[in-house]
Structures are given as C-alpha cells and as structure tokens.
Amino acid sequence: MKSLEELKELREKLQKDIAMRDDSEKPKIIIGMGTCGIAAGARNILQAVLEEIDKRNLDIVVTQTGCIGMCEKEPLLDVQLPGKKRVTYGNLEVNDVKRIIVEYVINGKIVEDLAIAHFEE
C-alpha cells in the first residue's frame, strides 16, 4: 500500500461484495422463482438485476420467492423501497430491468406500463 488513498480506493471496490451482510434497512427486489417463473425466464431477469446493481454500485437486497399464483404474468419482480408500498412488475423482458432500476429504484417513479399491482406490506 503506497498511501491511505490507495487503500480507500481498494475499499470502494471491495465493499459492495460484502454490503449484503450489513443489517440495516435497504431497498429490496424480490423475484418470483417458482417453476412458472423460471420457465418464463426469471433466471435471466435475476442475472440482469444483479448486473445492474453491480454496474451502478447500488446497495440493494435481492431475494426470491415462489409462485404467487399469477403465473401468466411471470416473470414477476417486486420492489420494496423502505417506507413505500411494494410494487409488482410483471411480464418482464430482460431489457425492462434497467428501466425499473433507473426509473423506480433510483428515481422513485413507478414504471406504470410494467407495474401490475401496488400493495401495502
């Protein structure tokens, strides 16, 4: 280590690998990964979400859930921002992921054409 700055730069790069393990409240993205979801392409959606988060250095929790009974709308993705209603987006394509993250997760504007439900937790 040549300087304290060099260490801090390294930390910037490394901290997101471990950010998941801090216990504070963070935005949450929940992906439907039941058989129906996976068949409809949920795995690619999940991969796209992870890549966006990594690219933009976001501190977001990604989890998955099973079938919620809206199989014809799969792949489904829910976003739960702290203190806000949970929003469900459906019939997703991989390209939609970027819009949801930029417009809703970062800027807080619901992507109306993709949203299929908002509900209280």
Binding site: M1, S3, L4, L14, Q15
Partner: peptide
C-alpha cells in the same frame, strides 16, 4: 461475519484504515 481468510472482506469493511490513519 467475514471470511477470515479474505483480506478483501476486511478491507471492504474499512480494515487497515486505522493503521493508514495512524502512520500517515
């Protein structure tokens, strides 16, 4: 909470910055 065999995880949580601060 961390992998003790990963210096990266320790640094990711701010590790060695106290040493850096003291020395510099």
């Amino acid at each position: 909470k961390v992998n003790p065999e990963s210096i990266g995880e320790y640094i990711g949580l701010g590790g060695y910055e106290a040493a850096g601060k003291a020395l510099t």
